[in-house]
């Protein structure tokens, strides 16, 4: 595990702190939204009522300027025939579900709930930070990615650069807002508000390398207990963003939770992007010369 980013820890020297992050274990999320509420209260985020969405219990629908934690609710029909139904009743009667030792809140009779608290990923390769022309977005001493509200001029470039659709502009304010991983609380050795409020420890805060180690153990335990669909998301250095500060344990494919299956930092193609723009500029120059000198005056 390397965990190093372009500017952390190197540019901080002695002031660098261990890289902090979130491990969100969605297998034990109960969808209580305590994280959303705690985040709103601590960070004094304006309301984000979108009305009744009709999409399960989700009425905020996505991360955005006024939603820095977002709990996704997925309802899946579990194919259950007559025999399955009988065995479910039988199993419930024997309480074997609990005897299994490891269980999740997502197992039910014919309906599977997937709940997951999403957040800014604080990417190792953070496109938002790289494209920000003002330097408002920066890498903190904890290795997290934060927008400086006194510098952001609302150019909006970070918004389409983020492969997760995290950043958004506050309309009345003009600036872009997102999760700071509670930078103010971290400076006081406190954990982020969402992690503190989470009643099941689905949201775990800590040093990233420790969290990754813990997550591997949890994944193994779930796999051994028969949860073949359990997977870690953004927990590796060789994915398209070289791993995230906030990573997840999921029970289905990422896109089911609204997460891209293969997010890539656009900077990885910056070389060919600039080369093409340069070549096109030269071609334009050649075209101009040809147009002016390639015929009568």
């Amino acid at each position: 595990m390397t965990l190093d980013t372009v500017s952390w820890p190197a540019s901080y020297g002695d002031e660098a702190k261990p890289r902090k992050g979130f491990f969100t274990d969605t297998s034990i999320c109960i969808g209580c939204k305590a994280c959303e509420v705690a985040c709103k209260e601590w960070n004094q985020i304006p309301m984000s009522i979108k009305g009744f969405s009709g999409k399960s219990y989700d009425n905020t629908l996505a991360l955005g300027a006024n939603t820095w934690r977002h709990v996704a609710f997925v309802e899946q029909r579990v194919p259950a025939g007559v025999d399955d139904g009988a065995s479910l009743v039988e199993a419930a009667a024997r309480a074997d579900v609990i005897d299994a030792g490891v269980h999740t809140y997502q197992e039910g009779d014919g309906l599977r709930w997937l709940m997951a608290s999403d957040v800014c990923k604080h990417c190792t390769d953070a496109a938002c930070l790289e494209v920000c022309p003002t330097g408002a977005l920066f890498r903190t001493e904890f290795g997290t990615v934060v927008v400086q509200e006194d510098i952001c001029n609302g150019c909006g470039y970070c918004i389409p650069a983020c492969p997760f659709g995290v950043l958004e502009q506050r309309k009345d304010d003009g600036r872009v807002w997102k999760c700071t991983l509670c930078y103010d609380r971290l400076k006081e050795d406190q954990q982020p508000a969402c992690a503190q409020a989470c009643p099941t420890d689905s949201i775990q805060f800590g040093e990233l390398d420790e969290l990754r180690h813990r997550a591997e153990g949890r994944l193994k335990r779930l796999q051994d207990a028969g949860q073949a669909e359990a997977r870690l998301y953004l927990a590796d250095d060789d994915d398209g963003i070289h791993g995230a500060g906030a990573f997840f344990l999921l029970l289905d494919e990422p896109e089911v939770y609204g997460l891209p299956p293969d997010p890539v930092d656009t900077r990885h193609e910056l070389g060919s992007i600039w080369s093409a723009a340069g070549a096109a500029a030269l071609a334009l120059g050649a075209g101009l010369i040809a147009a002016v000198f390639g015929g009568r005056r």
Binding site: T134, G135, C152, N153, D173, G174, R175
Partner: peptide, 20 residues
Amino acid sequence: LGKPERFLNMLRMFKVTSPM
């Protein structure tokens, strides 16, 4: 710009990673 009065912040730095 969302904050037009801050347009000079565009010239706080020069970043090749940001075509803007």
